[in-house]
Design a protein around this nucleic acid. Sequence first.
DNA 1: GAAAGCAGTTAATCCAGGTTAAGTGTAACT
DNA 2: AGTTACACTTAACCTGGATTAACTGCTTTC
Lengths: 204, 204
Amino acid sequence: MVILLSLFLIMPHQSLIHSIEQILPLTPGQKAILKEAFHTAEVKKKEVLLKEGEITKYSYFVVEGLLRMYATDDNGFDHNIQFAINGWWMSDMLSLLNQTPASFNIEAIEDSRLLTISQPGKESLLQTIPGLNIYFRQLSENALAAYQQRFAINLSLTAQERYGKLCERYPLLIQRLPQKHIASYIGVTPEFLSKMLNRPFNSK
Amino acid sequence: MVILLSLFLIMPHQSLIHSIEQILPLTPGQKAILKEAFHTAEVKKKEVLLKEGEITKYSYFVVEGLLRMYATDDNGFDHNIQFAINGWWMSDMLSLLNQTPASFNIEAIEDSRLLTISQPGKESLLQTIPGLNIYFRQLSENALAAYQQRFAINLSLTAQERYGKLCERYPLLIQRLPQKHIASYIGVTPEFLSKMLNRPFNSK
DNA sequence: GAAAGCAGTTAATCCAGGTTAAGTGTAACT
DNA sequence: AGTTACACTTAACCTGGATTAACTGCTTTC
């Protein structure tokens, strides 16, 4: 594990290749193609990767770091739609697929190292290595499964319970997230989350 | 359009083939394989296709009709996660992919004609016709885009606005849905939706 | 064609969570 | 070192939507 991490520092593409090889084997030639297709990017904390209204150019794969994607409402409040840590993908899918203006913003919560690929780049990559359709299919299917579960949680549980589920499912993530971003993700105000967490005995 | 509909009555697989051919061409041989791989099913209104706790066996493709997928909370209330009409797919993805007990129920709201395929069936079909990975990838990616958008809506808008968005996006669907199912989908009680819709001037 | 259900309505009361505002602690820039 | 800025807390008050319950049609069923 430590060895893998330090590998990614020198060769960030290894992180992606590792992710893909969980699902399908890659030949050395294919690995070389992948390294060509993806560009590396380093972003600082608070740096913005995508602004609402722009046309999404890239899909992002997080090698190291932490991103958030959020929508801004009419009153200027943020609502976190998704986070992405090491090994996760992030993109405004609607804007990416249809090349329409994004409804979301993407921002780095921590300094992050990313791999990026443009939508045309991804499409031609899929032509060159059709096997990657399997990888991306499974990726989307798993994400879909997670979204369905999260919808059930949001529709049927109280804020307290939603918080509990989040801690259960992503214990490492919450430790890296400022409280206000957790609040925004589970759909309450930072004030209410604070009150909730400091309730006597944290009862109920 | 009318011609297509009547075709589906006699040959329900045409509906699926039509859906796939929007994305990739199929040879006559492949079409024959598809017809073998999918089984037809007819279900009556209120018939249950999947019960919470069961292991999901099938993915469902709706040829004609209307399904809903819902979670039941600790107090016995339903929460609609998704609907599916003609040409849409439906499944509890987590249960299907991991072969774990389902957290959702699937039920017919109208008499429906379906195509079903088991998970092993789908996997061997993908081996036989690898091109279908493209179809299923795009299917999941589009569904993902829709879920992201819906999350933004649910986190940032009021019930009134959520209702408005639903009408905007799926005007045909709401006409076929009993009000209580709309309420459950947008995350309010039937009582509140009724009050909301009958507010003087439907103001605000 | 009575009876039983079920979908929708109305209204009174209640509460989870929002809003506003002021305060504290700590990290970050000069 | 001092100031700014932001994360978090606390508390008073407010409100969108829940809960309960009673009532009004419609269907469905026998």
